[in-house]
Design a protein around this nucleic acid. Structure first.
Lengths: 169, 169
DNA sequence: CACAATTGTTTTATGCTTAAAATAACTGCA
DNA sequence: TGCAGTTATTTTAAGCATAAAACAATTGTG
């Protein structure tokens, strides 16, 4: 398809370079670094403070938003993880008393998963601290910068989705 | 520590809200969504086009930058993964002929890992396509927007590092 | 030299993640 | 009704990831 870039080094742009995509690559690596850095710190704190993993926290966060609960399939769509993944995750959270599952009355294949009162209480406590951690982590940015970043990330998300889904021509 | 501004923008702010960090939370979730979305697509394409996983690609990318190779410890620092993690990853890539390991001449504990010529050739081919994918994914942003995003992410990285390490007072 | 501390790597136990295959229940329709 | 196709979930096999423990070799210091 494309002619590849001839990797002359950093400052030598005098010579022509048909497809230079290194700026985008740097941008992606920086985005990934930020994400990895923050995610790692959140994992660490959840573990140290509450002895909980991020996947379990995320799962409870989804359920907290929907008090009546939802099926495993709904949950897997919302969390953007595979269905099989959730089976064992939910199992463990049921075993620890955070979640409750009951078979749907209208569809015997499906199960409705929801937080137990205890699970909800525990989650809320964690969520409050979690929110403060995130505020601390982004504290070096001004309101204005946060707003700009938000906008640029929204645009990035759209751009990525188009590249992934294939943009309708 | 800091008194935060009370963001009076949305509709629900008549009632008092002592610590509202929801904007930062939204920002973090958006950053994470972008990162997850792009990473997932890169994984998918690496797998479909080259039958290689992202961790293996990343490992080879690090080694491609240093032709003389490096120790497992150096590699784990650069890749920000645990040492034990690399053991099996390197094993597999040695088995498939992409990597070569030899015991250091100066330190009998250490091993120098490097790409084989075949491994390097294969990696270069993958890297070229990979770079084009990333350019495609970020293609919806103007040069200006990319530059702004780069700057804001640099600042985010700094801010996060400060929160993590504990900023020197 | 001796030996404590450090450094480089592997092993172990545990958990998350996926894709693909298997199982079970539901739905639409001839 | 019967049955093909779809949908909900679980199982399986493989890989990635970590922390902590174990081991081995090196370094620094009295």
């Amino acid at each position: 398809m494309s002619n590849q870039t001839i990797p002359l080094d950093a400052e030598t742009k005098a010579i022509e370079m048909p497809d230079d995509h290194r700026d985008e690559l740097r941008l992606w690596l920086r985005l990934l670094t930020c994400s990895t850095l923050i995610e790692g710190e959140v994992r660490r704190r959840l573990r140290d403070r509450f002895d909980v993993t991020l996947p379990r926290f995320d799962l409870m966060a989804q359920l907290d938003k929907v008090p009546e609960g939802m099926t495993l399939s709904d949950l897997s769509k919302r969390m953007m993880v595979s269905n099989g993944n959730l089976t064992s995750l939910v199992d463990r959270l049921v075993a620890s008393g955070h979640l409750e599952r009951r078979v749907s009355t209208t569809d015997r294949r499906a199960q409705i998963i929801k937080l137990t009162p205890a699970g909800r209480g525990e989650f809320r406590a964690m969520a409050t601290e979690h929110e403060a951690w995130i505020a601390e982590i982004f504290g070096g940015l001004t309101q204005r910068e946060q707003k700009d970043l938000m906008r640029l990330l929204a645009k990035t998300k759209l751009s990525a989705r188009n590249a992934i889904m294939g943009v309708a021509p």
